[in-house]
Simulated scan of single mutants.
Amino acid sequence: MNSPTGETDGDTPRGQLARRIAGEITLSDDPGATLRKWRTDFGVSQTELADRMDVSSSVVSDYESGRRASPGIGLVSRVVDALLDIDEARGGDRIRQYARVVSAGFDSEIVRDIREYPAARPTRRVYEALDATEVAAGSQDTVNGHTVIDSIEAITSLSSEEFYRLYGQSTDRALVFTEVTRGESPLVALRVVTPTPNAVILHGVSPDDLWTHAPKMARADGFALAVSTAPLEEALDRLRGI
């Protein structure tokens, strides 16, 4: 089927995102956890998803918990369509957000690493990988992925729109800024980007050297803030193993 612009459904942002979600669930070692990750990323309750699929909420719960066998292609397709239909009914914010990055390439001088996890991870695991110290608690205690950004390159080279794209496929993630001396510039830059990440880790700065207003800004915007001075390459290797 073609869209009014002449694109086939698979070429549209919705079609591209649908393929990504379906592929990630189908290929996951824990499809239920991956299904749950995407559902929560879209801000959809089990009941809302079940209603859209015309099944009982226990069916969704059983698949997510692993009490039922891994969902087949048919069910995965129904889940994906339901999530995207719900998003479109709400205004399509998630689809538009993902469209910004679905085909984006990233300069390795700016982005050291960008990953989506197969299922949500406790934020503390990111902290452990980076040997980070939390200086402000956030409203969420899990992340669905991480992006490691060279703060100097990003702030000096990117527009606000390009900076926004670095969130990757999910906003419920950890942003790690390297080459930080005080933390003022990354945190000020984050104020122009909504929604905010779940956690921000500033690498290269200690709690004593952190910008005085940093914890207060993090609390005001609702994200967790941590700092790290661990050897960067070793920390990145551990982070990639999460």
Rank of each mutant, 00 (worst) to 15 (best):
S3N: 12
E7K: 09
T8I: 01
G10A: 15
D11R: 12
G15A: 09
Q16Y: 11
Q16K: 15
R20K: 09
A22I: 02
E24G: 01
E24I: 01
I25V: 11
L27Y: 05
D30F: 01
G32P: 00
G32I: 04
T34N: 03
V44S: 08
V44G: 05
T47I: 15
T47K: 11
D51T: 06
V55T: 07
S56L: 13
S58L: 07
Y63D: 07
E64Y: 05
E64K: 03
S65P: 03
R68F: 02
R68T: 01
P71R: 03
G72C: 07
G74W: 02
V76F: 03
V80W: 00
D81C: 03
L83E: 01
D85R: 05
E88T: 13
R90H: 12
D93C: 10
I95A: 04
R96A: 11
Q97G: 06
Y98D: 08
Y98S: 11
A99R: 04
V101E: 08
R112D: 06
R112A: 08
D113C: 06
D113A: 14
E116V: 13
P118M: 04
A120L: 07
T123A: 10
V126F: 03
V126K: 02
A129F: 01
L130S: 00
A132M: 06
A136D: 05
A137E: 14
Q140K: 15
V143M: 07
N144Y: 10
I149F: 06
S151W: 03
I152N: 04
A154N: 04
I155A: 14
S159P: 00
S159A: 04
S159N: 02
S160P: 02
E162T: 02
E162D: 11
Y164A: 10
L166G: 05
A174T: 13
A174R: 04
L175S: 00
V176Y: 06
T178R: 12
G183S: 03
E184K: 08
S185T: 09
S185G: 04
P186W: 02
P186A: 07
L187R: 00
V188M: 09
V188S: 03
R191A: 13
R191P: 01
N198D: 10
A199Y: 05
L202E: 07
D208S: 13
W211R: 10
P215I: 11
K216T: 08
R219H: 12
R219F: 04
L225Q: 05
A226K: 03
A226Y: 01
T229P: 03
T229E: 10
A230L: 02
P231H: 12
L232M: 10
E234H: 11
L236T: 01
L236Q: 01
D237M: 07
R240F: 02
